[in-house]
């Protein structure tokens, strides 16, 4: 990592922490953030009731299993890879690697970010059909990794979900 990259990364980390605590500043940042601009929007209707739906959960909050390789925090442009998270994973086997937001509270109660326990309860109560494998990504992805996310890793995760018969996906940010 070059000195410049290291400096850039430390500034990003500090900025992410500040944004976590000052919503008004976060809104301003959102207006200037260089994001992909989309015109067309894909749309799939859900043809079955929730009690029959296989639901998956995905987050960009950097959630992964303790025994999986953590997201790459050394690259200031982010990490476009994902981690499959089995729906039966116990809470204690999950952790967060993501330096760009304050996840102190999410570590205390993961349901505020990755509500797998609530979804399992809803399946047990018969409200949701079943859960598919869930997915952990990290946000804060910039070029050239943004292209990898769009062209490779996001479509690959979608393909795996389809293969498993997933009907619907709930997504949460970091």
């Amino acid at each position: 990592m070059s000195d410049f990259d290291g400096l850039r990364q430390n500034l990003s980390r500090m900025f992410g922490q500040v944004l976590s605590h000052v919503p008004a500043l976060a809104q301003t940042w959102g207006r200037t953030f260089e994001s992909v601009i989309s015109e067309e929007v894909p749309f799939t209707r859900l043809p079955k009731p929730l009690r029959e739906v296989r639901l998956a959960l995905a987050t960009t909050g950097g959630v992964h299993l303790r025994n999986q390789t953590p997201f790459d925090m050394a690259d200031s442009r982010g990490d476009a890879t994902f981690r499959p998270l089995p729906a039966a994973t116990p809470r204690e086997d999950l952790m967060i690697t993501h330096d760009y937001y304050d996840h102190t509270n999410a570590v205390r109660d993961l349901n505020i970010l990755f509500p797998l326990e609530h979804l399992r309860d809803l399946v047990a109560a018969g409200h949701i059909g079943s859960l598919g494998t869930c997915y952990g990504f990290m946000g804060h992805i910039e070029p050239p990794h943004l292209e990898a996310l769009i062209n490779e890793t996001a479509p690959e995760a979608a393909r795996l979900m389809r293969e498993e018969g997933v009907d619907a996906l709930l997504l949460t940010p970091g």
């Binding site: 976060a26 479509p155 995760a157 979608a158 619907a168 996906l169």
Partner: peptide, 20 residues
């Protein structure tokens, strides 16, 4: 995150994204 939702939706999965 919206990009992941768009990829899933394009593959035939209905998505809903919570954003801040």
């Amino acid at each position: 995150m919206g990009l992941i939702a768009r990829a899933a939706e394009a593959a035939g999965i209905a998505t809903v994204s919570i954003v801040g």
